[in-house]
Design a protein around this nucleic acid. Sequence first.
RNA 1: CGGAGCGUGGCGCAGUUUGGUAGCGCACCUGGUUUGGGACCAGGGGGUCGGAGGUUCGAAUCCUCUCGCUCCGACCA
Length: 483
Amino acid sequence: MSKKAKTAITPTREENFPDWYQEVIKAADMAENSPVRGCMIIKPYGYALWENMQSVFDGMIKALGVQNAYFPLLIPLSFISREAEHVEGFAKECAVVTHHRLEAGKDGGLVPAAPLEEPLVIRPTSETIIGDAMSRWVQSYRDLPMKLNQWCNVMRWEMRPRMFLRTSEFLWQEGHNAFETEEGAREDTHKMLDAYADFAENYLALPVIKGEKTDDERFPGADMTLTIEAMMQDGKALQAGTSHYLGQNFSKSCGIKFQGREGGEEFAYTTSWGISTRLVGAMIMAHGDDDGMIMPPKVAPHHVVIIPILKDDQDSAAVLDYAEKLAARLKEQGIRAHLDASDERTPNKMWGAIKKGVPLRVEIGGREVEEGTLTHVRRDIGRDSKASCSVDEFVNGAQGILDQIQADMFARAQKSLESRIHDVSNVGDVESFYKDGGVGFVKGSADILSDAAFEKVAKEHSLTARCLPFEDKGNKVIIGKSY
RNA sequence: CGGAGCGUGGCGCAGUUUGGUAGCGCACCUGGUUUGGGACCAGGGGGUCGGAGGUUCGAAUCCUCUCGCUCCGACCA
């Protein structure tokens, strides 16, 4: 064994961040690649995380009056071309279904046999098909606002897929709201962005910058796109959620019109908003360390993993019994406790829990059983946080420890974000910052974007305008490399 | 679609330059000793070396063509 601290993940973040990322996913058993390029298999542990995220956010939007529904995967080709900018933005990423039957071919393989009269597009997003439904459902101003959401998969043919961050098929929620007035819709666009920021910061421990996208970065077909931008540990930006004000673009192309208060025919103002499984990637890259994943307690599949340290059979029964009782008591408190009763060797169980990022680990052996105590360790801090206490004390205090972990994770991420936003006053500053190997974002006057020299600098260092932050009232711009 | 790298038991790799009976670590199975931050001993199972052609007495190794994966760029959530 070498003297150098052994990390559970190789390479380390510093050695090779992209490889480290992939290894964390594998080590935590969250997902794997599928036989089809660009698609991924989300394994039970990774999916459990997504389910928790869904459940939290679903509750948030229902509290805002949103109703869930489900719209079809397949969209008539003609629908996609209804909104001019929308087509242009999505056309090249669309997967198209052209046939509906397979038959035995000449060389024994199966070949598509029956061409469709009108090809179908696998939804890259559902504005058009939901717009079509809304056009039938909205008759009067009394039907507004209408707030619909669906949890589903979408497909965008990607040139360069990366697990969770950019896969051809991904899971998300897409919300589609329709309003009587422009003000109502604009206000809603902000409200949904606020929900995203709340979700990211308070549940995923992911600090974000709220702002508006620049013209080039806007959603195809939107008049305004709002975003929450997060920073990963390598200093790159990740667009973590977007909320779009669509004006009357889609209501006009989909025919969402209603009879107004004065009796006249009016077009609705619509919004759409989405977050995806990409957020899983964001959490990995924002919180993970060289030993693997670190789950934010509020969405972690397991809050506490209990590891029984078993010696001989006689002892084992007592230890297991003790551990089971502890698990039951924790569950009563609403804590997701997981007893690892597998017959893995003890160190493997421990490293397994570390790599999976379970926030709190409890170790129980013969000693603890005799004393009525247990040993616990925080994942985010590691062995330095190892402590011993009575079972009662732990059962009463566990939620507090989890809350502390959640708060500390957010504070760490926020500090990392804030310390890596650098003020610049002109394009020259931007260039020299990245040329000198600067890591993170730069922030300066929004005028930088219209400087003729910006385009070249941006291209050279793969920079994009991330957003015009609200906190600067649109006068400043955040620029950075991004995923 | 460009640039770089890689395809060898479940996973990670060596072997390829210089052709000669396919190896190592981890994992797995059996038995035993072990167990508080990655145990040990002994025995064992598992691979048509990504695929197709070719050269050769003989190909993981040489030649041609293909397919796929990863990273970096262009496009994007």
